[in-house]
Nucleic acid binder design. Structure first.
Lengths: 205, 205, 205, 205
DNA sequence: TATGAATGAGCGTTCATTCAT
DNA sequence: GATGAATGAACGCTCATTCAT
């Protein structure tokens, strides 16, 4: 009874499967949220069975970590690159927002939940907090000294990142209410008023 | 399992019970998160049993909605009051942050999760987005006209609220990395530089 | 599709259900072994669903413990009673064996596995070892002083219990190979030879 | 998961591999128990992969059987040897216990579980029961005739083996409660009292 | 109104076994 | 002979919800 699923195995190399699974996981996590996504969905969406998933990952939580690391490292790399060129915080905000938009291959609707879930897992939280502090440091270290002393530049970094996250979340929740360009412009004006016009790299893309 | 019969049924009036249950739910949701809180915990914590809970609320999700409305209305009322006195956005930010700190009887650690869960439910999301737009409007309508025309004040409102949310989340996730007073001061200086010093109401509570 | 099981609930009082579930568990554990028995089987065999089982017991392991305690206490009580009447170790062996035969409502085939599994759970193991030492003490304290000093009577107790367990297991594994009456008689003769004939209570049943 | 390629395939002759696998299985089974040991562990511990294991054994259960046979045959051989020298049952008990102690390269803690699992498999059970009866026969055939006629010596064999098993299990479960030397001595005295002192071979190894 | 026994769908994970390469 | 990716059938447990009393 119940036509037993025919034993079929595309039998991909491990590395390829990992990519597939991570891709499926990212897509599902961002679409439906971490909790709402089952390991079975991830596996099926990658073309194999639940059991096989555990051949490639130790646990669902581990997939989350893997994903978090991947995204964070990319984010970090991008930030590094940005800071190398643009010395002005508003410019950084601009590029950060622009990136998070374009980079969302799939709907980021529930991305926030993804991060929240990640933050619940102690080791992931530690990782993320560490990475954030490093980002703040990097930011404070790269930005023009006219923005103040080290401490002040640190505050500015936190300010900028918080603004970024706040805008991003709001934008995800209700895009109609927030005009990203207007926000970036406003931030730029605020900074210019206080610190004077400071060259911000190559200028607008 | 099977907790030994406590058989206590004070049989309170419905309205009173609702209050109790909502109180318990708020406490538990903010402490442990929505998903992590079971209906049983809510009921028990309010002094009755799981089954009885369903006499007062249609579902767990409904409790969430009820709570979201309650908190949002309070938040809204508070904002109204603040806007009546303080005309400066930085002052608003100050009071908002101060309030969310003091108002947290219990750790707000997982508060974020609470809102995320709320946002997943379409009707709650619609409600919250509507309320947010109203808050932006109210803000833009109340703030000193020296902050720009209606549209600009709208942007400023979104900017302020986003900054608020961003700072709040970061503060929840890793309090050590963000100094709220420094952030408020920084925001005040940025605004003053651009718009000039504008009276910000009666000053600190 | 798949005619959803009609919601039917005999709705028994908790105490009664507990008994039923313990009974089902005992039957299944002894027949098929602890590992081989699923919580679903236990529940179904008691007339309810898997989920309901967890209304009455915290875990499968807990059911095991409950059962172990029940059997052990009964065993202990029986031993107490026996020791009150029969002062001779062979008589104790006799009664112990007789009891474990009659008491087995259902096949004891896999009883051994039941105890092994129990011994794997640390808290159960501690409980059982404590109980065993108490039984040895009780035995050594009750038995006629002609069997030696306290230490020697302790050894005799361990000897008797070990013999009992050994015979019991062998009897369970292959009843044809061991004649319980002959073993009891042999043990009696060995004791009589060494310690002289010592009254063993009311005599043979 | 997915251990980084070690890609080592010494490609040993089948017989050698079998030995290795059986060795690994014995070590793991006795240390952790049959159920707790996975085929992967066995294979890895023998230096090859899970899949390869099935070239040498039809199933995990078959490994168990193989092992049971091996151990039993060795046990039998040892008994044979012992019976050739020592004619006194207490001496046999002594040597049996001593052997099971020394022979345990690794903790025998879960050895019991090993045998229980074996007994669950019908064909293994049949084999073991047959072997046990043969051991009883051999014992009864070898032991001094002063211990009684064939039937009585059979009972004595069962008595001795049961005592052996009982003591062994108790010793494994809670070593503190049973003094093996005292038990052996006690058994010797019981026998001597009844049957008179009978030479027990060459004495202690 | 309140109780609490019962439901049932679901989830993350494990593992002996298979088989294409 | 060996690999290792894949299978699939369990299993223990959770929990929002229902409902007879």
């Amino acid at each position: 009874m119940v036509p037993r699923k025919i034993r079929q195995s595309p039998k991909l190399p491990a590395e390829k499967r990992r990519e597939q699974l991570l891709g499926s996981a990212r897509r599902l996590f961002t679409k439906n949220g971490y909790r709402e996504t089952t390991t079975e969905q991830i596996a099926l969406s990658a073309g194999l069975t639940k059991g096989a998933l555990y051949h490639h990952f130790k646990s669902k939580e581990n997939i989350l970590f893997e994903l978090v690391k991947e995204v964070t490292e990319r984010h970090f790399a991008r930030l590094d690159e940005v800071l190398g060129r643009a010395k002005a915080p508003a410019r950084v905000l601009d590029i950060l927002l622009e990136q998070s938009e374009s980079h969302s291959q799939c709907s980021l609707r529930d991305n926030v939940d993804f991060w929240i879930q990640a933050m619940r897992v102690p080791r992931i939280k530690r990782y993320l907090n560490r990475r954030f502090r490093e980002m703040v440091d990097r930011f404070a270290g790269s930005v023009d000294t006219r923005y103040g002393n080290k401490t002040q530049r640190n505050h500015l970094a936190v300010f900028t990142f918080s603004l970024f996250h706040g805008l991003r979340i709001r934008n995800v929740l209700d895009p109609r209410v927030v005009s990203l360009p207007a926000q970036i412009k406003l931030y730029g004006e605020l900074l210019d008023s206080k610190f004077g016009r400071i060259a911000s790299g190559k200028g607008r893309k």
